[in-house]
Amino acid sequence: MPRFQRKGVSKILFATAIADPGYLPTTAELTSATDYSRQIAAVDGFSIENQMIETPDLASTFVSKIGGDDTAADSSITFYEDDTLDDIETDLAKGTTGFIIICRKGKTPGAAGMDVFPVTVSSNSAAITLDNEAAKITVAFAITDRPLLNATVPAGT
C-alpha cells in the first residue's frame, strides 16, 4: 500500500456556495473556491465523533455500549497572518457561512477523499505571542450539518 504525506498533497478550500443539497460541489464551484492551502499552519477537528450510550444490564458487571448521536468535533484552522493583506480577517469574518472542502488526496479529478463541511465562522482571532514564530490567526468553525465525507473530486477540476 503506497503511503503519502499530507503536506504538498492535501488541499483545503473555502466555498461560499454549493447548490447540491448533499454538498457535492460541481467542477465550477470547486474551481471558484478559495484555496487556502499555502496559508495554513495547522488544522484541528473537521471530523465526526459519536457520543456512545452506555447500556448496563443486571446480568453482567461489564457495561456495554451502543452508538449514539453523531456530533462534529470542535474545528479550527490556524492561518499565517499576512502583513499587508487582510483576506483571512475579511473573507472569514465571524458569522461568515460557507463550506470547508478538504481534498485529502489532492484536488486531482477522480481522486477519492474529498470531505465537505458546511460551516459558520464562530471566531476569527489573531494569536498574539512574543515567541520566535510567524504571526498567525486562528479561525474557529461551527459545523452546521452532517458533512459529505469521502466523496470523489469531480472531473474537469
Rank of each mutant, 00 (worst) to 15 (best):
A15C: 05
A28K: 03
Y80K: 10
F46Q: 09
E89F: 04
C103D: 12
V43R: 01
A93T: 10
G67K: 05
I77T: 14
G110N: 07
G22I: 03
G22M: 07
T71V: 14
G22S: 12
M52N: 12
A33P: 14
S10E: 11
E89W: 04
D83E: 13
D115Y: 08
A17L: 11
A59R: 05
F46E: 08
M52C: 05
A28C: 03
G22Y: 10
S32C: 03
V9L: 14
L85A: 13
T97K: 12
I12M: 09
L58W: 03
D35K: 00
F14T: 11
V63W: 01
A59G: 12
G113N: 02
I40W: 04
I88P: 13
T84M: 05
P56H: 08
A33L: 03
G98T: 08
A19D: 15
F62R: 01
S75E: 15
S47C: 10
T26S: 15
S37C: 12
Q39L: 10
S76F: 15
L92I: 04
P56I: 09
D70P: 11
F62I: 05
S75V: 14
G8L: 13
M52A: 12
I12C: 04
L24K: 09
D115G: 10
G45A: 07
Y36G: 02
N50A: 04
A41M: 13
G98N: 04
E49T: 14
S47H: 06
D57N: 15
T27Y: 01
T31H: 02
F62L: 01
G95W: 05
V119Q: 06
C103P: 10
A28H: 02
V121I: 04
T120V: 12
G45P: 15
D82T: 09
M52G: 07
D70W: 03
A73L: 01
G106A: 05
K105A: 04
D69A: 04
A15I: 05
F117T: 15
D74T: 11
V9H: 00
A73V: 02
G95D: 13
E49H: 06
T120E: 14
F62E: 03
A19R: 13
L92A: 05
D86I: 13
M52F: 11
G95I: 12
A73H: 04
D115W: 02
S47T: 14
E81S: 13
G106P: 15
A19W: 03
G110R: 01
I40T: 11
I18T: 13
S64T: 14
S32N: 07
S32G: 00
R104W: 08
K65F: 11
T34D: 09
T16E: 15
L58R: 06
K107H: 10
T61L: 00
T96Y: 00
D83Q: 09
N50C: 08
F117G: 12
